[in-house]
Design a protein around this nucleic acid. Sequence first.
DNA 1: CGGTAAATTGACTGCTCTCAATTTACGTGG
DNA 2: CCACGTAAATTGAGAGCAGTCAATTTACCG
Lengths: 248, 248
Amino acid sequence: MAESSTNYSYCVDPAWQGRADCANCVIRNMMLFSELPLNSFDNLLQPIVHERYDAGALLYHQCEVGTEVLSIRRGLVKLVLLSADGSERIVRLLGGGAVIGLELLDKSTAYRHSAIALQEVDLCRIPLTTLANLYSRHPELCKSVGLQLQHQVDQTDRWIMQLNTGKARTRIAEMLLFLEEANAGQDGVIELISRDDMAAVVGITKETASRVIAEFKRQGLLHHVTPSTYRLETQRLRELIAQEAKHG
Amino acid sequence: MAESSTNYSYCVDPAWQGRADCANCVIRNMMLFSELPLNSFDNLLQPIVHERYDAGALLYHQCEVGTEVLSIRRGLVKLVLLSADGSERIVRLLGGGAVIGLELLDKSTAYRHSAIALQEVDLCRIPLTTLANLYSRHPELCKSVGLQLQHQVDQTDRWIMQLNTGKARTRIAEMLLFLEEANAGQDGVIELISRDDMAAVVGITKETASRVIAEFKRQGLLHHVTPSTYRLETQRLRELIAQEAKHG
DNA sequence: CGGTAAATTGACTGCTCTCAATTTACGTGG
DNA sequence: CCACGTAAATTGAGAGCAGTCAATTTACCG
């Protein structure tokens, strides 16, 4: 199991930031406020801030008292649970369109996970007060929140079923296909995550993850494209998964 | 992994049923409609039906087209995902106060799991039309739905972290503690689930589950109380879990 | 009391973990 | 641009835990 030896740098001063322009948001149709009329964002007491973070940045920390919900515009974010003994487990990977920190709406004051950027990430920080403000004028916003939660439930169900069941080879294969979908992978080209992160996703050790990935490379299921990206042989990966399943 | 050799009997004609009396519901304060005024339930076009099922009854089936959300009043229900190869995985255990089938609100037509009673279960079937009806008059109902979803997210996170991580002994111990909480166990007395179900919960084989439970009995962590119930030594179980963690 | 399903137990295999060594990749500073 | 240092990834060897298959016992329902 992965050790939490890493000290994630807390990005207090993000590389890029500014007041968000929700009305002209490029991916507005996938975002939390997609159902709201364009003029809803005038006169907000607290502005919605648009920020950019580098890979590795800590967006918020488990148990930290929070006052903002984060809407991801671009890039991949991991939600991590820390256990008593220092090991950590990744319970979700979320990309553009996802909203994290929604547990704050549940009367609680603290975030329930640590959220860490796995790639360069663009996001909007939405203060709870702003959300309450918008909500009072647009109750239908609640439906969007419900959809967000339902998506997270769905992802976690898949997490258990596909990524945390079966042999290591199968799990890693499923994880690669998952990454490909999350990345909206052009032509099956994805950015791999670290072996530690793979291990924390599928519940094996980093050594086993490394062995499996190395084997996949040798078998031509993974092709080096650029220093940081790989192309997946998605069809063959799917066959491999089906094969393991049949064997039982 | 557990095989889906069992054919669950579809309980079309439940043992006990009648129109629900929501205004006088004994556990109204934990239910979906707890925030609604008492007179909201008059003039409903479609009645909310109260039903009772035996252990083993199939409440609904994965992929079945559904028109009702189920509010559990009493008893334990498992949500099961079936994989391509016939193996199954339990992704949630829900008791009184939980609402299942909420994925139907998400524009989808089919249930995403199979729901099966693990004990005698009392529940209310709430037609989607009734829910829409109530919702139009009481938008605050949306908040209750959000809470339900958030609870399910929280349970699934714990599921991955505690019940699907570590050695078999640890997982089973965590599962027993989970059952104890779900049962609101009097004095730590719980009704055990089958070894197959345990296996499908924590992701091991039924044989390993059996070995661990047998060992726990021998070590006095589990005491026979009645033919169907056992008392847990919760404190010692917690110590066992902490022990395994330290060893790492 | 008999029949069937569930649980237990055994023996053996095989996968994954663990610990350790080595190689590769990467960012920094010369 | 290259040299260097550190972190990440790869690989090996051995042990241990869980999976598999099979036999036996126990529990439960009629």
